[in-house]
């Protein structure tokens, strides 16, 4: 089978998994469905010749599922009780469908799948090994050519860790410890 057929199958599976996750009223099952969607994304990366991304996505997906399950455990809420009235959600679904129809011409204007326009990286192919000494061009880019991006990523992670610590530190001081 060509790669495109596989991708159609897996993206269809991901869309189905997302809808199931959003419509289930059991929050734990919803989190597990999201984990399956993320693993499907890892398989897509593998098919699209990005093995490094597939590995990272695999690990990150497991971590985020663990974080979400920890949240459900800490709050002890397993069922989604609040539902929106049907008429209101039908209006919103109509708007989303209109956005889909409106965006279709945009995708027809893109180059066909498998023939990208991006030509920036031909320099990396030609010079990457000599300039950085790394046979893996992905690491050559993230750790040499675009190292400031990686620095910014590290800063974002650091800020988010500081944010989480700050959010949880106020609990001891604020006296609202009857949460759990």
């Amino acid at each position: 089978m060509p790669i495109e057929t596989w991708l159609y199958c897996i993206i269809g599976f991901m869309i189905l998994g997302s809808i199931v996750a959003l419509e289930l009223s059991d929050l734990l099952s919803a989190v597990v469905s999201i984990g399956m969607v993320g693993l499907g994304l890892a398989i897509c990366f593998l098919l699209l010749q990005a093995p490094d991304l597939a590995l990272v996505q695999f690990v990150i997906e497991i971590l985020s599922v663990i974080i979400l399950i920890v949240m459900l455990r800490a709050t002890n809420q397993r069922w989604e009780k609040e539902k929106e009235p049907r008429s209101l959600s039908i209006v919103k679904v109509t708007f989303v469908a209109l956005a889909m129809i409106g965006a279709l011409p945009l995708f027809l204007g893109l180059p066909p799948f498998g023939h990208p326009l991006l030509e920036v990286s031909s320099y990396y192919f030609a010079e990457g090994l000599q300039e950085t000494g790394s046979p893996n061009l992905l690491t050559a880019i993230i750790l040499d050519y675009r190292v400031y991006d990686t620095l910014g990523e590290a800063i974002v992670i650091f800020v988010s860790v500081i944010g989480v610590m700050t959010i949880f530190r106020r609990r001891k001081k604020g006296g609202s410890g009857h949460g759990q």
Partner: peptide, 9 residues
């Protein structure tokens, strides 16, 4: 490899 590096971030 360039979009892959950005998506990794």
């Amino acid at each position: 490899p360039l979009p892959q590096a950005l998506v990794l971030t």
